[in-house]
Amino acid sequence: MSIFDQIKNAAHNHPTVKNMAEKIGIDQETAERAIAALTEGHHAEGDTMQVAADKSGIDQGVLSQVMEHVGGEGSLQNFMQILDRDHDGNPLNDITSAAGKLFGKN
């Protein structure tokens, strides 16, 4: 499962995400995708907003509003830390490990 999917699942049906979506005037599913895309964009090479827009298909104006509501670009690192179980700065190995356990490889 990708970082995008992991974060989107973590945000799914979260009351804070629902409230944010209502304040911005978007549906909750778009808010979930925006948070996931922004978080992945923050971790990727290049401009966070451009990567997030390319990944999600969401307008950069909406992405900017979501980023403001979650606390700015610095707060996106917090979403990555949620997935980084061993706190080594790399959530990808934790996602791989979890997937391996799920499929009986670890």
Rank of each mutant, 00 (worst) to 15 (best):
Q81W: 10
F4V: 02
S64Q: 09
T48W: 10
I3F: 11
I7F: 01
Q6C: 13
M49K: 00
V66I: 05
G100R: 15
L63E: 07
R33M: 02
D94Q: 10
K23D: 04
D84S: 14
E22Q: 13
Q6L: 11
A34D: 00
S2A: 05
V51H: 12
N93K: 12
L63R: 08
A36G: 06
H69G: 03
S97F: 14
L92H: 15
G104A: 04
V66M: 03
Q28H: 04
I82F: 11
M67D: 04
L63C: 11
S64T: 08
Q6H: 06
G74R: 11
Q77L: 12
V17Y: 02
M20T: 08
P15D: 03
V17Q: 09
M80N: 07
K8D: 01
P91L: 09
Q81M: 14
K105R: 15
E45D: 12
E45I: 14
R33D: 03
M67Y: 00
R33C: 02
S97H: 15
D84T: 12
Q60N: 10
D94S: 08
L102H: 14
N90I: 01
M80V: 02
Q50F: 06
H69N: 10
G100C: 07
A44C: 06
A99Q: 14
R85Q: 15
S2V: 07
A11L: 08
H14P: 04
P15G: 08
H87P: 07
Q65R: 09
L83R: 10
N9C: 13
Q50K: 13
I58Q: 03
F4P: 02
Q6V: 10
T48S: 08
D86Y: 15
A52T: 06
T30C: 05
L92T: 14
D84Y: 12
I3S: 04
E22K: 14
S75V: 13
P91C: 14
A37F: 00
G100D: 14
Q6E: 15
A53S: 13
M67P: 03
K18E: 09
N19S: 11
G89F: 13
G104M: 05
A52R: 04
H69D: 04
G25H: 01
L38K: 07
G104K: 02
F103H: 15
P91S: 13
T16V: 12
Q60I: 08
I24S: 04
T96L: 14
T96K: 14
G61A: 09
D27S: 01
A10V: 12
N13W: 08
D86M: 11
M1I: 04
Q50I: 12
K23V: 05
D94K: 06
G57K: 00
D5G: 10
A44Y: 01
A99N: 13
M49V: 03
G100A: 15
D86V: 10
Q81G: 07
D59S: 03
V66T: 07
N93G: 10
A21P: 03
P15W: 05
T30D: 02
V70S: 04
R85Y: 13
I58M: 04
E29H: 02
K101E: 15
K55R: 09
N93A: 11
V17D: 01
K8T: 00
V17C: 01
I24R: 06
D84N: 11
N19F: 08
L38V: 05
N19K: 11
